[in-house]
């Protein structure tokens, strides 16, 4: 379903972020990408969203080459990918409800669908009672749960979670990982980047280890080098 083909990324200051990265992942897989800070994890997932462009190589989503898509096609692709960021990246002037509704509006969903689905998805992440709270009125864990709700509300093919537990305490970290596992159990591919050993150990799913921009291990049983 996704395929990275000999992807390299070299920035203008000659620093190398990714070198010759090749891997694929199938629908329904849970893939963790681990590595030290600066190993290229975030660059790797940003490329799938076309937020970054490779210096060479290609990235395919199904049969689509992500970096040759036109604007409208790229918008459509992004609606098929739910994204969760370390810093939550919620819209600060919108309530939890509106943050999720915005993603649905962007996908062209009707007002009736929005009114029905948003409360439901907020219930799923245990935030039914904080629907009208603004991000600044939520804790870190709650913000991340809103971000997850936003990522899954359009029933995407993939959820990318880029260090989703980086700013959270152990209890919230556990909760977030459980939610991601639940999403994966329902058939959605999850691409998780992290450097938290506890998180990876608890998952026991496929792990790709990155070191200085290179894949040094790709283990289906969850072993890694850190």
């Amino acid at each position: 379903m996704i395929y990275y083909d000999k992807v390299c990324k070299i920035y203008s200051d000659d620093s190398v972020a990714l070198q010759d990265v090749t891997f694929s992942a199938e629908p329904g897989e849970f893939v963790s990408i681990v590595g030290q800070s600066g190993s290229g994890k975030t660059t790797l997932v940003k490329m799938l969203l076309a937020e970054e462009h490779p210096s060479s190589g290609s990235i395919f989503f199904e049969s689509l080459n992500v970096h040759t898509l036109r604007k409208q096609e790229l918008n459509a692709l992004r609606r098929r990918i739910g994204t969760v960021f370390q810093d939550f990246r919620l819209l600060p002037q919108k309530t939890a409800y509106e943050n999720i509704a915005f993603a649905m509006e962007a996908a062209g969903r009707s007002d009736e669908e929005i009114a029905a689905d948003v409360p439901h998805v907020l219930e799923l992440v245990d935030l039914g009672n904080k629907m009208w709270n603004f991000p600044h009125q939520l804790s870190g864990g709650e913000k991340q749960r809103v971000a997850i709700a936003r990522a899954i509300v359009n029933q995407p093919d993939i959820v990318i979670a880029d260090e989703p537990t980086g700013n959270l305490d152990p209890v919230n970290t556990h909760d977030i990982i459980q939610i991601l596992k639940k999403i994966n159990d329902l058939g959605t591919m999850v691409l998780l980047t992290t450097h938290n050993k506890g998180v990876i150990d608890s998952l026991k799913k496929r792990v790709i280890t990155l070191e200085r921009g290179r894949i040094v291990r790709d283990d289906p049983s969850g072993r890694y080098i850190l």
């Binding site: 969203l49 409208q72 918008n75 992004r78 994204t83 990246r89 915005f102 993603a103 962007a106």
Partner: peptide
């Protein structure tokens, strides 16, 4: 905010 809107696929 604008970059987040772009990443959720808004036109």
């Amino acid at each position: 905010e604008i970059s987040v809107m772009k990443l959720v696929g808004a036109s």
